[in-house]
């Protein structure tokens, strides 16, 4: 029974919407509501969050009835590597410079693929680093330090 719910497309979607709506509504309680005539910053967000929760509830209940499953498999592995590569890029840009950030990004994101050939990834990284330098730094004049020195 529990594993059924964990793969129930609409149940999960409804749950997600409900959760986002609830968080939105809870946070909006801190914003002044105002009146319809002079709306405060809390008016619109509260209405939106409430409607979102209603939608979430509807979809959730519908999911319990139709029991449709999520199509395909969850690609957590590629998702983790792609997200990590973006975050590492941002982190290294602030600390180590453009080239190290790009190199790290390419190696980590390539791990998300089905095959990882060190030689191929290295060639791709070198070619794309030169391309990125030519387009972004030389061509568009973005003020990035290439390395940390």
């Amino acid at each position: 029974m529990r594993s059924d719910l964990a793969n129930n497309k609409d149940f999960l979607a409804g749950l997600l919407l409900l959760a986002i709506g609830a968080i939105g509504f809870y946070m909006a309680l801190d914003f002044p509501m105002g009146t319809a005539r002079r709306m405060g910053p809390g008016y619109f967000p509260r209405v939106l969050s409430a409607v979102l929760m209603l939608f979430g509830l509807y979809v959730l209940v519908r999911g319990l009835r139709t029991k449709e499953r999520v199509k395909g498999i969850w690609g957590w592995r590629p998702l983790a590597f792609i997200t990590a590569s973006l975050i590492v890029y941002g982190w290294l840009m602030d600390r180590a410079g453009f080239v190290p950030a790009l190199v790290a990004m390419f190696y980590i994101s390539a791990l998300a693929g089905h095959e990882f050939k060190v030689k191929e990834v290295t060639i791709l990284t070198v070619v794309m680093c030169i391309f990125a330098w030519a387009v972004f730094v030389y061509g568009l004049g973005l003020p990035y330090q290439l390395f940390w020195w």
């Binding site: 089905h114 095959e115 990125a132």
Partner: peptide, 14 residues
């Protein structure tokens, strides 16, 4: 595609 997607990610990141 294994060459393409890291390059797309690069454009996204930059």
């Amino acid at each position: 595609y294994r060459w393409l997607f890291p390059s797309i990610i690069m454009f996204c990141a930059v």
